[in-house]
Amino acid sequence: MLRETPVNIALVLLLLTVPVAASAMDEPFIVTLATKVAIFATAAVGLNIALGHGGLVSFGHAAFFGIGGYGAGILASHAQNYEPLMTWPFTVEGTQQMLIIWPVALLAGGIAALAIGALSLRTSGVYFIMITLAFAQMVFYFAVSWPAYGGEDGLPIYVRNSFPGLNTLRPLDFFAVAFVWFLAATLFSILLSRSRFGLALQGARQNVERVRAVGIDPYRLRLVAFTISGMITALAGALYADLNRFVSPSMLSWQTSGEIMVFIILGGVGRHFGPLAGAALFILLEYALGGVSEYWKFLLGVLLLLVVLFAHGGLIGVVTRRRHHG
């Protein structure tokens, strides 16, 4: 049987080489698909910190994904229209610089996750699933009914936001940006899970009473994890907005929350490279089955059902025949 690490390395190398090769063969569409995989995987890495490591089944991560997306879209639209974001008490201009947009997306996602988490973490189990879903719906309906930034129609970004030294409109350049973020997020998640904080978080998932007994407050632990998780997903949202050059409430919809969860499950819960495997499989299926049948989501549903019912370790679990420990 294969071990997990070589499989992970192979996956990352595949994600890197496929778009480089496709770019050399002048297949920009494939590069865009790979970029989408990297971005979705980053969003799922974020959720995985809450869900896989913390055992917090959040059904509302679309809220953070969309908030990051709207952060990018709103800043860019103000820059495009030369309208300052606010003029009082001081003037804030919009921007198309990714280096400014990213911290804003991280901050906005973090604040939202802190607020939603602070309320939601008072509950647990099914109530937690439902209340995170409800908060995401709240943000969704707000975006739909607030007319200033496009409402239901969404918000276009006419020119992709820029990064110094890169031409982000070239597919391979933008892929590189998304890929580096994916690697950074994954590395961060691995380091986090090995840190004292990560160990305590996993401890709180396995046995909350013991964690309490050694003097750690699980509420604060989980709130920090949930906030970090929301920030990473928000960053992925900002990248996704740039990929499509468009932000719409559909980024905030409950289906998006479900899909980010599906990436993790297809790959394998709690595995560091599960999000990549899951997102890659999802995009491949969308692309391959979408060509075969208009109703590809039917087949996706059947596959997902089979994975949940029979292949508990997800894709990486099937390949390595190893259940995740811990």
């Binding site: 869900l51 089944v57 059904f59 189990g125 099914v126 699933i129 479900g258 969860m261 599906v262 499950i265 819960v269 109703y295 590809w296 989501k297 039917f298 996706l300 549903g301 059947v302 997902l304 059902l305 949940v308 019912l309």
Partner: peptide
């Protein structure tokens, strides 16, 4: 656990809607 239930029934939604 609840996570499996959410995902399996999410899969059922896809199957029913597309069907």
């Amino acid at each position: 656990d609840h996570l499996d239930q959410v995902l399996a029934t999410f899969a059922l939604i896809l199957i029913f809607s597309e069907g």
